[in-house]
Every structure is written in structure tokens, then in C-alpha cells.
Computed example of a mutant assay.
Amino acid sequence: MYTEIAPGLVVRIAMPPMKLSDFKVIAFDMDSTLINIECIDEIAAAVGKKAEVAAITEAAMRGEIPDFKESLRRRLSLLAGTPASALDEVYRERLRLNPGAEALVAAAREAGLKTLLVSGGFTHFADRVCERLGMDRAKSNVLEIVDGKLTGRVVGEIVDGEEKRRQLLTMCADVGCSPQQAIAVGDGANDLPMMGEAGLSVAYHAKPKVREQAMVAIDEGGLDRLLEVLQR
């Protein structure tokens, strides 16, 4: 059961008062959470395949395709042969930080939290966003590029929901805190495993399945609205 504490900001009634400084780690999804786009959809747009790829992305984020790895493989296969230069174009021309991202990450850092970006997206974007926001760690997928073109595959294991969960737990272990002292912020079904481990789960403009399971749902406004729930 939820209560709307302010327009577009919903909190579980049973949630006790919390301060940002009560936590030690904050983990963020990237696509449609820290940033305004789904990067794979925008790469597809550069080669005229956005509708087909975006449909799979949407189904995966709603939880209609349970196997994230399979959904990613299907989408990437459609991008085989795409010039790697399309990645720079997407970063330069289409990627923007979501409202409140800088303010929330800065507040978390000031409160002493370690910051983690963990994404089923790609290092080409995640590493840059991590650096731009001054975050501590990023984990995402490495696109395979041969002769200047995407092969339609990733290098190594795919970062899925289970890997997001592991990355959150690893960061907590490295910091020396319980997962109950972590915050996890996401919008799609593959964020649920890490959100389920965290002491505070936050849905940002999320799919219904994610919103229903989160302790806090930000439905309007920016990421920094979380600071309306957490005292400094």
C-alpha cells in the first residue's frame, strides 16, 4: 500500500523515516534512469531499425521477455554491421543526463555514500556517464567491434538483472556494509534483483511491475526528488 506524499512522489506507508546518511551505497541503472534514452534504441535509430529494436527493449523492461540476455542478443543481432561511429553520434547528439541526476549523485557523495552505475547497456556510454557524474564504479556490457563495425555481440558475459544484484552486493562487501544500507534506483524489470536486495528501492518513471515493488516511486520530476524523502 502506498501514499502520495507530494504530487508524483509515492512512498510505502510502512517505510520508516530515513536519512541519506543512514546509507553507505547507492546504485543506479543507466538507460532511462540516469540518462534520458535507451542507448541501444538510439544506435538502432542511426541505421533505421529503431522501431524493431525498441519494441524488444520495451517488452524486456516490462518483464514480458523474462530472459534479459536473450532479449539483448536479439536486439544486438539486428545491429550487426553498424558503424562504430554511431556510438559517438548517440553520445554526442542524443544522450542527456536526466533531471536531478547530478544533484542526487552529488548529495550522495557529500553524505559519504559510494556510488555505483550498473547497466545492461554499454561501456561506451556507461564509463563516460560515470566519469561525468564523478561516480565511484561502473559495470556494463562491452560491445564487440571488428573493423570499425559492431558484430552484433558483446565481449564476455552479459550484464543482466542477476549481475546487477551481484554488483550491488560486491560494492556493499567492499564498503563493509549490509545491503540494507544500500539504495538501488531503476526503471525496468532487470533492475528488480538489485532493488530487492537494497534497503531502499526507488522506481524512477518506471514500468508498472517495477513501480509496484519499489519502496519509493518518482513518477514526476527529477531524480533529486528522492531528497524529499531522505533528510540529508
Rank of each mutant, 00 (worst) to 15 (best):
K207Q: 06
R211Y: 10
G134Q: 12
E110K: 14
C177I: 10
A108W: 11
R166H: 12
Y2F: 07
R128P: 12
N36V: 11
M18N: 08
V146G: 08
A173K: 06
L230N: 01
L34S: 09
M30R: 02
A108P: 09
G100C: 06
E157G: 06
D191T: 01
A203Y: 09
M15T: 13
D187T: 04
R132M: 11
G148T: 03
F122V: 02
L97P: 02
K49Y: 04
A173W: 09
S140D: 06
G48K: 05
A51K: 13
V10P: 00
E197N: 06
E110C: 02
D31M: 12
P66T: 08
K69Y: 04
V118S: 01
A14G: 06
T151Y: 03
Y204W: 12
T82D: 04
L226P: 03
R75Y: 02
L72A: 02
S201D: 04
Q167Y: 12
C130Y: 02
L143K: 11
I26H: 11
S77N: 13
Q213L: 13
N98Y: 12
V229P: 01
R12Q: 15
T151N: 04
A198W: 00
S201T: 09
L87S: 01
D29E: 13
Q231N: 11
L95W: 15
V229F: 13
I145T: 03
R128T: 07
P16Y: 11
A198Q: 06
G100N: 09
E162R: 15
S32N: 11
V53Y: 13
A217Y: 14
A198S: 12
G161W: 05
A44V: 14
A55C: 06
L116E: 04
A173M: 01
R96T: 09
C177M: 02
T82P: 11
F125A: 11
G176T: 03
L230W: 07
Q213H: 13
P208C: 05
D127E: 15
D187F: 08
A44R: 00
G81I: 10
L133P: 03
S201M: 02
R94E: 04
A107T: 12
I5S: 02
L192C: 12
S85Y: 01
E212F: 00
S71L: 05
L79F: 13
V142W: 10
S32M: 10
R166N: 05
A6I: 09
V185M: 03
D22E: 08
T115H: 14
P66M: 08
K19E: 10
A44I: 09
F68A: 02
I26K: 01
A51Q: 15
A6G: 06
E228F: 05
S119K: 08
H205I: 04
A108V: 06
V229M: 07
E42Q: 11
A189R: 10
S178I: 07
G8F: 03
L150N: 08
D88P: 10
Q181C: 05
